[in-house]
Simulated assay, not measured.
Amino acid sequence: MYARILVAVDLAKPDRARQVLAQAQKLCDPDGTIRLLHILSGPVTLKLRATAMAGLLALSGGADPRILPVLRDGPVEAQIRAMAEEDRVDLVMLASRLPGMPKFLHDSSATELTRHSTISVLLAQTPNPERNPHHV
């Protein structure tokens, strides 16, 4: 069990975010905390910030007091690392899926975090509907 978990989610993919959050709830101590993080990129307006916070609050459901929604803006990998260090988290969780060839050839934020992090990083894989049992 982990005392402090950081769950970075993409609100554009709420089903995947819910799956990762559910896994984090199973791994978190009863007295632990789960930082539910969404990172805004590009020009950030008050309306965008309010919409994103509403999305985080809807995702967390309000039933689990361990879940604390957080918004940040800037480069994804840098913001995840900064928050993980500031909060001294025990585990960083990210949604991932089996990559297609274009993703495989280019490093993702998840790949960079797992390569260079001193904190445990769990990539919660979700199935890619484009893949079938014949993929290697």
Rank of each mutant, 00 (worst) to 15 (best):
M1S: 11
M1N: 08
M1K: 05
Y2H: 09
I5W: 00
L6P: 04
A8V: 00
V9D: 10
D10N: 14
D10I: 03
A12F: 04
P14D: 11
P14V: 06
R16I: 07
A17W: 02
L21W: 07
L21G: 06
A22I: 04
A22F: 04
Q23Y: 06
A24E: 08
A24S: 14
Q25Y: 02
K26N: 04
K26V: 01
K26W: 01
L27G: 05
D29M: 13
P30H: 11
D31V: 03
G32F: 01
T33G: 12
I34P: 06
R35M: 02
H38V: 02
L40C: 05
L40V: 07
S41T: 11
V44L: 01
T45S: 15
T45D: 14
L46Q: 13
K47R: 09
L48R: 09
A50Q: 07
T51Y: 03
A52W: 01
M53I: 00
M53G: 12
L56F: 03
L59Y: 00
S60P: 01
G61T: 10
A63I: 04
A63R: 09
P65D: 03
R66L: 00
R66P: 13
I67Q: 12
V70L: 12
L71M: 09
D73H: 04
D73W: 01
D73C: 01
P75F: 08
E77R: 07
Q79N: 05
I80E: 12
I80R: 00
R81Y: 05
A82S: 10
M83N: 12
M83P: 06
E85S: 12
E85I: 05
V89E: 09
V89Q: 11
D90L: 07
L91K: 08
L91M: 13
V92N: 01
M93F: 15
M93D: 14
A95K: 02
L98V: 06
L98N: 09
G100F: 11
M101L: 13
P102T: 03
P102M: 12
F104H: 11
D107K: 10
D107F: 06
S108R: 04
S109G: 11
T111C: 05
E112I: 06
E112D: 14
E112T: 08
L113S: 13
T114G: 15
R115L: 15
R115I: 12
R115M: 15
S117A: 14
T118E: 13
T118F: 02
I119H: 13
I119A: 09
I119G: 07
I119Q: 09
S120L: 15
L122A: 14
L122P: 05
L122D: 15
L123T: 07
L123Y: 09
A124T: 02
Q125D: 04
Q125I: 11
Q125V: 04
T126D: 13
P127F: 10
N128S: 05
E130T: 01
E130C: 03
R131D: 10
H135T: 02
H135F: 01
V136L: 15
V136F: 12
V136H: 15
